[in-house]
Design a protein around this nucleic acid. Structure first.
Lengths: 150, 150
DNA sequence: GTAGGTGCAAACCTTTTGCAGCATG
DNA sequence: CATGCTGCAAAAGGTTTGCACCTAC
């Protein structure tokens, strides 16, 4: 899906859910869609402020909450108290490997993994709303880098 | 493994790694081992203060960091910015289902799940240090409760 | 004796909130 | 023109840090 199509989908959905489509929301959503995969709220704020220096931090957070609630954006804990976000439209679900050296994030996907999670939940009578699988470790590049520098 | 055995293992390990074994550390570790599975830093602090009201918050955090680093304790993001800890000694690795209604935590384990994660990492040349799989949703009890109240 | 550890309070960082004014539908 | 949204600044919540004193080794 192309960025402006995604934008329209989101606009339509939010309008349809009784939200107003403001300049700020449009800017924030556009920026989120256009920014590289995983961004913090603060980074998104900075990006937005390039185009409109008056956008407030609060509005970015509030918009991210709306987008997350609506399922257009997904937040993931970085383990250090912060979160990174990524937009979801047009992306298949995937899990993440997080490099503890350079904080690079590698995405991966394994259908069998998904199925087994569902099966495990079913066994416990647990109803999954969302899930988060993260592998923390050292990415290939950092392994090479560390190997070379020794 | 019994609590005092675990305690000794930890004491030995920390001493062996050049750490000092202080009254505070002993108290904090003992309390962590004895407390129910998943506790926040603040809860641990409160528990410790029952026995010694002067223990400081900073020391609890610093000790948790040492224990986590050494692999005796594992922290997991609760998704709302906070973390819960659990001690690991004598427990097999397991994953978690977190109830978004009552915050209950259900543990589960699936060996095939673990194997497939390792396989996925291998494919990317990623070296896993630790990993975290959480399913967020509604636990059985809350489903019953919600079903009943409607 | 000397690292390393502790307690306290202040600092930090990310996120949320109260409120008065503004803009959208 | 009513309600929802925004910006600002202050508050909140969880965690870390600087510093002077203390204590295990």
């Amino acid at each position: 899906m192309k960025p402006d199509q995604e934008l329209q989908v989101i606009e339509r959905h939010l309008r349809g859910s009784g939200f107003r489509w403001t300049n700020q929301r449009s800017l924030i959503v556009k920026t989120a869609l256009g920014s590289h995969e995983h961004f913090t709220a603060e980074q998104l704020l900075d990006l937005c402020r390039v185009l409109d220096p008056k956008v407030s931090r609060a509005t970015v957070y509030r918009t991210l909450a709306v987008l997350e609630e609506a399922g257009f954006v997904e937040g993931l804990d970085t383990g250090d108290g912060g979160r990174r976000f990524e937009h979801v439209l047009g992306h298949e679900h995937h899990d993440h490997m997080v490099c503890t050296r350079c904080t690079a994030i590698v995405e991966f996907r394994d259908d069998e993994l998904e199925r087994r999670q569902e099966a495990a939940a079913r066994r416990q009578g647990f109803k999954i709303e969302r899930h988060s699988l993260r592998l923390y470790g050292i990415c290939k590049a950092c392994q090479v880098r560390e190997g070379a520098s020794r």
